[in-house]
């Protein structure tokens, strides 16, 4: 319907009650509340098993593994795009890492190569999207199968388990105040990107493009450049996540990372980012990642059939989107 609010009879400058705005800001608050409740419920229900150090470590590392690419995915979705190829990029970068390790590369040599590989995968997506005008969903559907095929071509049915312990130490075992480095890295990234999105021109461009791409073009914002950077960053962060996964479980096989894209997208959507672009927050996606990992941890600790996890995730996504939809309807009134 034509939105025609020709309200020449209602004078106040602000047309919607301020209360509505608070809901938008408060979504992260609600999420945090849910996370805390969930932690409480799980620790009560698991008779303290939740607080077992190895369980805590695993939850934190898993959260980091999801949250790092989720931060990049948030930016991509905020510009109005999407990337379903990251599961395969995880597989691909992990394979590159594995092959390097097999050839006895040092960590300091292998890691940069892996990161550059991830960034290049993202850049390729971005080029097809900005130069070739291929819709993001199609581009990344394509590259999803391409990278997976490359992984098979490189690995076949073989496994690589030869992951240097340094990686495990780095991301999982070494801790500061009981918190693994991967989680600290993830939090650092969240802080950095929160700063960038809120206080750097580039960050605001990301949102501006998702809000109104036409206006962004008209005002001369570097639309294509921003998109290029955002997809490339996501590729890079995906490579980081792949390295963390290897630290967590040193096994690389042809299926590594399969379905990971959906976990990450689910975390971002749970975090309140609109799939239509223009709004969303890095912190929200971080909390969304936490929620996803807590749920699956709870399922394990409660000895619930693991199959419930899917049903619960699905319902969580629907409920989260429904809530944000209600908010938006209120606003557009």
């Amino acid at each position: 319907m034509k939105d025609m609010a020709l309200g020449w009879r209602t004078p106040p400058p602000v047309s919607k009650p301020a209360a509505v705005r608070r809901v938008g800001l408060g979504y992260e608050g609600i999420l945090l509340g849910i996370v805390i409740l969930l932690v409480g419920a799980i620790s009560l229900g698991s008779q303290g098993n939740f607080w077992n150090p190895s369980n805590i470590t695993s939850v934190l590392v898993n959260t980091a593994i999801t949250a790092v690419p989720a931060a990049g995915m948030t930016l991509v979705i905020v510009t109005g795009g999407i990337d379903v190829s990251i599961g395969s990029v995880v597989g691909f970068t992990a394979t590159v890492a594995g092959l390097a390790f097999e050839n006895h590369w040092a960590l300091a040599e292998a890691v940069p190569v892996v990161l550059v590989t991830g960034a290049l995968a993202g850049l390729l997506n971005a080029l097809a999207i900005t130069r070739g005008k291929v819709p993001p969903i199609i581009t990344t559907l394509g590259t999803m199968s391409i990278w997976r095929a490359v992984v098979y071509a490189l690995l076949g049915g073989n496994w690589i388990t030869q992951v240097p312990i340094g990686l495990t130490n780095l991301f999982v075992l070494d801790k500061v105040f009981g918190i693994p480095w991967s989680f600290i890295l993830a939090m650092g990234l969240v802080l950095l990107l929160t700063y960038v999105t809120r206080s750097r021109p580039f960050g605001r461009f990301v949102y501006a493009i998702g809000n109104n791409e036409e206006a962004a073009e008209v005002s001369g914002l570097p639309v294509n450049f921003v998109k290029l950077l955002v997809y490339t960053l996501l590729g890079l962060l995906t490579a980081v996540s792949a390295l963390m996964m290897l630290g967590q479980s040193p096994l690389i096989q042809a299926t590594t990372g399969t379905g990971f894209e959906l976990t990450v997208i689910a975390a971002v959507v749970l975090g309140g980012t609109s799939i239509l672009g223009g709004r969303g927050s890095i912190v929200g996606s971080f909390l969304g990642s936490m929620l996803v990992q807590l749920t699956s941890d709870g399922v394990i600790l409660f000895h619930i059939q693991p199959f419930w996890e899917g049903v619960v995730s699905g319902l969580m996504i629907l409920i989260a989107v429904f809530i944000s939809l209600l908010n938006r309807r209120e606003e557009s009134r």
Partner: peptide, 15 residues
């Protein structure tokens, strides 16, 4: 949006 709906039901149905 369909992409979210069916992402969610994909999880739910698989489960």
């Amino acid at each position: 949006p369909a992409i979210i709906t069916t992402l969610a039901t994909m999880y739910a149905y698989s489960g």
